[in-house]
Every structure is written in structure tokens, then in C-alpha cells.
Design a binder for these strands. Structure first.
Length: 576
DNA sequence: GCCGTTTTCGGCCCGACTGTTTTCAGTCG
């Protein structure tokens, strides 16, 4: 996968073009930036795409035309892009890192290079220590302060964080704002509202007429480590968890427009705005306006979309993946909702590496409102997790049987395991033991670094065993930690379809696996899905919202998800 | 450099905030 390398080069080229200052440079810059965004968010491997469809396939990507396609091909073939190499020779400056300093963009960085020979962060630090910058025209002591602060912040920055960390942080701040008595309403917007699996910053909107007071309250919250920008309507702070958080104070009359605008995604908004323009309107964060600049709509998202001839769509869909067209045709799919989930199909207990007993897990599941869970402990090969052997499961299931009797049909624990798929594709328990179970999750936990073909065969063999109910976290990735293993997912989906095996949507915020685009790809096959939190302690079962968010981002409805079914139906399905 | 319900040329989002300015450029999202 070389997408990231190419995307990085294009964004660096955008910065290099910016300092050249030719007349139409700013559009060229935007073109390079857009291309970088397209490639960095692409699910497919650019190299695969090129091998299968040639330069034409590349040119079908949004923002990639002839010239950029040629540059991609050049990079794939030679590992270099000549124009980029030339530019770098001419400007031997680490713009990529320098511009990560808040307040320092390409233009200022270039001037620091021209006048002070600042080439990288180290040089910048030295120049700051010697107070060389404040002497330059257009720079002052405050610029030095700003860059110093920017450098410190950069060191403490984590970049993107898990939705599972970001969303609760944002919600906690929203809760405090709501209780402050200063706002009429506060809400989370941005990528967290869209339930993106990782978030680079947090966006919070508030409806209030007391802007200054709200900002005062906000910057003094204990979560805040630094103030980046402070204004009456927009304030940006750095949070202790390592991401920035924007707070915007909105006028009551434009709240809907602001919510729509700041929820994004950017690409979705571009499409919606284009439609507005086509209808003779103008759409921005303040509202929808007609040709004369008269406000047409702004109070609610629903109304704005309606005025544009579209259905309102859930934030999770707003990624410019065709939802705009469907909304215009009134053909948006119905998405699964958290309230429709009736059970958790992947949980662990103290018998292996969990922290709670099955009784405690059941108690919490019932509190959540579930009607059933599957208890799916690890198997013997996974020694690090105290995986159980056949005897262990036999003993454990007796306990579960007794518990089920006590529950008397009011709740059901499905007896299962998260059985390891071994290197050769065999399963980590004997057939008799597996056949005694209601729900078998097959997962890969070891030998991640196999060749794509071997890994695909390994998984397909496991699914062909006829002993598996669901493929657990099918790509094996851990967000921000480990890439997915090499595997031909189409072949896995085919095997799942052939064997009636469901695909897991692992709701654990560190996994989210399958992810949104994989779910879309898998939906083309006749397969079912199963949501599981992979809970290792009671409160992990609350992660279900992230799985549901991911399913919704994959445009999945309740009908294809096993654990939206009533208990009796699931029992019927499993006994087959 | 990209793109097409203004279609192969001529547009391309734009408002808030900051610092250094006496009216604006650079940065950011």
C-alpha cells in the first residue's frame, strides 16, 4: 500500500507551489491538496487500481486528472516524481513539519528560510531562542510567542485519536456547557458526529447569546491544556488528550445551517453546495440564501435539505459516497439504530482474559436492554489470553447452562467461543467441542505477516469447515496501531456467503472491523452481519454504539444484522 | 491542475481570527 506516500508527496508539493506565487497557484495548490485527500482516504490500493485499470482508472478518482495520474504512475514505476525532486532541490526546507506549527504556513516558513536559513523544526527552535524572528519585517514578539507555543503543542500532539476517546471527551464538554446555564443548546458536530473511526479534532457548536461568557467558561475547563485561537464566535483549544477542540457560538437563527456546515464532510458539503448553486441559492454556515441574498432557510438541517430537494440524511452517510444523489431521489436506505440491537455477539469473561464473571456480564447486558449475549472466550492457542481447551469449555458451559435455567427464558446466553484460526486454517478446538456450541466466532490472532494468498486460503479454509457462525474482526487491524493483514476480502466474503457465515462488525473502538467501506463491499454478497463489542469487562458492552455507527457508515439496515432479531428468531437461525 | 445542469475554457468557497498593520496578508478549517 503506497497511498500514503503518494498523498504525502502531493500535499508537500502543494506547499512548495504555494511559495512560488505564480498567478493561478492557489488553484493548483487546491488541486494538489484535493488529490492528496482523495488518495489518503482511498480504501483501495492505488497500485492495485493502476495494475488493473491503468492510468484511466486513476483518472476516475475525484481530483485526479491527466497530469496527476501521470505523476502517480511515475512514482509507482520509479519511486520518484521528477518535478517533486526538482522542487525539493530548489527549496531544501522541511515544509511538511514546519507548517505543522500552528500559525506557520508555507509563506512564512519560506520567508524564515530566505532570511534566516530556517530549514526544519530544529532551526526554528534555535532562531526562536536567539530571538531572531522578531526582527523580521511582518514578524514581532507575538509571532515568536505563537511559534514557541506551536512547537510545544506539536510535541504534545497525538494527531488523530480514536472515536472511542474523542467522542466521550466531546460529549463530556457538551454536558458541562449544557449545565453552565450559558447556552441554550450544545452539540457535537464534525467527524465525531459522523462517527468516523478516528478523529483529528473535535467540533462543538453552541446556541447562545452570551458568546464571551461561553468562551470564558470553555477555555477554563480542566480538559483544556492550551488556547490556540480565542474569538467571540470561534475558539480553538488544545485538549489534554492531544487533539484540538473548536467551539463555535451560533446565532439561534442559523443553528441548522451551522450544524449542517460543521458536520461535514467537506466533500459532502461541496456536493450539497453545488446543488444549491444550481438552484440559484447560496449555502454557507449562516443559512441558505436566494439570489438577492434573502434568507431562505437556516433553522434546521431538515429544512435546508428539504429546500434543496433532498431528504435529510444521517450524519454517518455524509461522506460523498453517493448519498446526495439518493437523497435527491428520495431513496436513502433505512439505517440500523442502536435501539434495534437486542444482543451482543462477542463477549469475554474471567474464564479467559476478561475482567468480569458471566453473571456480571449478563447483569450489565440486561441493564443495557439486551435480550441475549454470546459468551465467546478465547481458545487454547492464545495463551496470552489464558485461552481454554475443550475440557475448559465443557466445564464453563455447565455453568452457563445453569445460569440460562435461572434466567428462565427472560434472557439467553449463547454458548460460544472466539476460536483461533490457526496458521494452516484449522480451528483451535476439536469438532465435537465446536459442535456443542451455539455461536462460534472464528478469529485470526497469530501469524499476521503471511502472504496475501496464504492468509486468504487460511481464512477461507476455516469458513469452509462448516463449524463457524461468524468471522471475527475480519481484517485484523488495530486502529492507530496496526494495519490490517494482507487478505483478499472478496474471497473471504464469497466463502462467507457460500457457508452462511456472518461477518462481524467488531464494535470495539480500537478495532471497528469490518469498517464502513468494507461493509459496503461485503453488502454486495448475500451475507449477514453480527455486531459484537468484544467486551472484556462489563462497561465495554457500551461500545455497541461505535459498531452501530460503523454499520450506519456502511449504509447497513437492521434487516441484515443478526442481533437486531428477536431472541426466538436468533435461536431459530442458530439451530439450523 | 481539475472539471463540466455556466461543459473543452474559464472558473475554482469563504469567513473568522491573528499579528502587524493604518487597510491587510497569512493561516486555518
Amino acid at each position: 500500500m503506497r497511498n500514503k506516500e503518494i498523498a504525502d508527496i502531493f500535499s508537500e508539493m502543494a506547499q512548495l507551489i504555494e511559495i512560488e506565487d505564480e498567478p493561478n497557484a492557489r488553484f493548483k495548490i487546491r488541486a494538489y491538496q484535493k488529490a492528496a485527500l482523495t488518495i489518503s482516504t482511498l480504501q483501495e490500493d492505488v497500485e492495485d487500481l493502476y495494475e488493473k485499470g491503468g492510468p484511466k482508472a486513476l483518472m476516475e478518482l475525484p481530483g485526479i486528472g491527466q497530469a496527476l495520474a501521470e505523476k502517480i504512475v511515475e512514482y509507482l514505476k520509479t519511486g520518484k516524481i521528477k518535478k517533486f525532486e526538482q522542487m525539493k532541490k530548489e527549496y531544501p526546507v522541511d515544509f511538511k513539519n514546519l507548517t505543522r506549527v500552528s500559525g506557520l504556513g508555507p509563506k512564512k516558513a519560506f520567508r524564515l528560510y530566505k532570511e534566516l536559513k530556517v530549514r526544519d523544526l530544529e532551526d526554528l527552535k534555535n532562531a526562536l531562542e536567539k530571538h531572531k524572528i522578531q526582527g523580521l519585517e511582518g514578524f514581532g514578539t507575538r509571532s515568536e510567542e505563537q511559534f514557541k507555543k506551536g512547537l510545544i503543542m506539536l510535541e504534545g500532539q497525538k494527531g488523530r485519536i480514536l472515536l472511542g476517546d474523542g467522542l466521550p471527551a466531546a460529549e463530556s464538554i457538551v454536558g458541562k456547557l449544557n449545565k453552565s446555564g450559558l447556552v441554550e443548546e450544545a452539540m457535537v458536530a464534525g467527524s465525531a458526529r459522523r462517527m468516523r473511526e478516528t478523529v483529528g479534532d473535535l467540533d462543538i457548536l453552541v446556541l447562545s447569546s452570551k458568546g464571551e461568557k461561553v468562551m470564558d467558561f470553555f477555555v477554563k475547563l480542566p480538559e483544556v491544556s492550551d488556547i490556540v485561537v480565542r474569538g467571540p464566535t470561534k475558539t480553538t483549544v488544545m485538549l489534554r488528550i492531544g487533539v484540538t477542540c473548536d467551539l463555535r457560538v451560533i446565532e439561534p437563527n442559523s443553528f441548522g445551517a451551522a450544524v449542517q456546515y460543521f458536520t461535514g464532510s467537506k466533500d459532502h458539503n461541496v456536493q450539497v453546495r453545488t446543488i444549491a448553486i444550481g438552484m440559484g441559492y447560496k449555502l454557507n454556515e449562516y443559512g441558505l440564501f436566494d439570489r438577492k441574498g434573502k434568507l431562505v432557510s437556516a433553522r434546521s438541517e431538515h429544512d435546508i435539505y428539504k429546500k434543496l430537494g433532498m431528504e435529510w440524511m444521517p450524519p454517518e452517510m455524509r461522506e460523498a459516497r453517493g448519498e446526495v444523489k439518493l437523497a435527491q431521489q428520495g431513496k436513502l436506505p433505512k439505517l440500523v439504530e442502536l435501539a434495534e440491537v437486542k444482543g451482543d455477539m462477542h463477549t469475554h469473561t474471567v474464564e479467559t482474559d476478561g475482567a468480569n464473571t458471566i453473571e456480571e456480564m449478563v447483569e450489565e447486558a440486561r441493564r443495557i436492554g439486551h435480550k441475549y449475549i454470546a459468551t465467546t472466550n478465547h481458545t487454547k492457542s492464545l495463551q496470552i489470553a489464558k485461552g481454554m481447551n475443550e475440557k475448559g469449555f465443557e466445564r464453563y458451559f455447565k455453568k452457563v447452562d445453569a445460569l440460562n435455567r435461572r434466567l428462565d427464558g427472560k434472557f439467553r446466553v449463547f454458548k460460544g467461543a472466539e476460536v483461533d484460526v490457526l496458521k494452516d486454517g484449522s480451528l483451535d478446538l476439536d469438532d465435537k467441542c465446536l459442535k456443542s456450541m451455539d455461536w462460534v466466532v472464528a478469529s485470526v490472532h497469530m501469524n499476521y505477516n503471511m502472504e496475501k494468498d496464504a492468509m486468504t486460503k487460511r481464512i477461507v479454509k476455516a469458513l469452509d469447515s462448516g463449524l463457524v457462525n461468524v468471522m471475527g474482526h475480519p481484517t485484523g487491524r488495530e486502529l492507530l496501531v496496526r494495519e490490517q493483514y494482507a487478505v483478499d476480502l472478496d474471497k473471504v466474503f464469497e466463502a462467507a456467503e457460500r457457508n452462511g457465515v456472518a461477518l462481524e462488525i467488531n464494535a470495539n473502538p480500537q478495532r471497528m472491523d469490518l469498517n464502513d467501506t468494507n461493509i459496503m463491499a461485503a453488502s454486495k454478497y448475500k451475507v449477514r452481519f453480527a455486531l459484537g463489542t468484544d467486551a472484556h469487562r462489563t462497561f465495554h458492552m457500551r461500545f455497541m454504539r461505535y459498531g452501530v455507527g460503523t454499520a450506519r457508515r456502511g449504509w447497513l439496515g437492521p434487516d441484515r444484522i443478526i442481533n437486531t432479531m428477536e431472541l426466538r428468531k436468533v435461536e431459530g437461525l442458530i439451530s439450523r
